[in-house]
C-alpha cells in the first residue's frame, strides 16, 4: 500500500495548464483520470507522491493555475500490466 496525492481542477483548461507549467519544473507527477473515490468537476487529475505537494502547489500558484482540492488516497501499488496477447502477436510478426 502507498499513499498517493491527487490534485483536482475546476476545468480541463486548468488541468492541462497544470501539466504544461509543471513539465519543466522537475516535479514528479502524472495526469490521470480522476479515481472513483474522489469527486471532481473535471475528469482529469494530477497524481503525485505526497512529498511533491508543496513544490507543485508553489508552481501552480506562481502560474495562476486554479485547483479545487488535494486528496490523499491509500492505494495498492500498480501491478505491471500483462502484455500476454500483444507479446504473442509480436513474436509471430
Amino acid at each position: 500500500m502507498a499513499v498517493n496525492c491527487y490534485f483536482t481542477f475546476p476545468t480541463v483548461y486548468f488541468a492541462l495548464r497544470a501539466e504544461a507549467v509543471l513539465k519543466d519544473s522537475g516535479c514528479s507527477f502524472k495526469m490521470v483520470p480522476v479515481p472513483r473515490a474522489i469527486s471532481s468537476s473535471c475528469g482529469t487529475a494530477l497524481r503525485c507522491p505526497c512529498e511533491e505537494i508543496d513544490a507543485i502547489k508553489e508552481v501552480l500558484e506562481n502560474n495562476k493555475v486554479q485547483w479545487d482540492n488535494v486528496h490523499l488516497l491509500q492505494e495498492e501499488e500498480p501491478r505491471p500490466r500483462s502484455r500476454g496477447l500483444l507479446a504473442r502477436k509480436e513474436a509471430r510478426a
Partner: peptide, 21 residues
C-alpha cells in the same frame, strides 16, 4: 500501449490547450 493510459479525449484536450496557448 505504454501511453499515459488516458482517453482519446485528453489527447484532444491537449490539442485545444496548445492551440489556445
Amino acid at each position: 500501449p505504454g501511453r499515459s493510459g488516458l482517453s482519446r479525449s485528453l489527447e484532444s484536450d491537449r490539442v485545444v490547450y496548445q492551440t489556445r496557448q
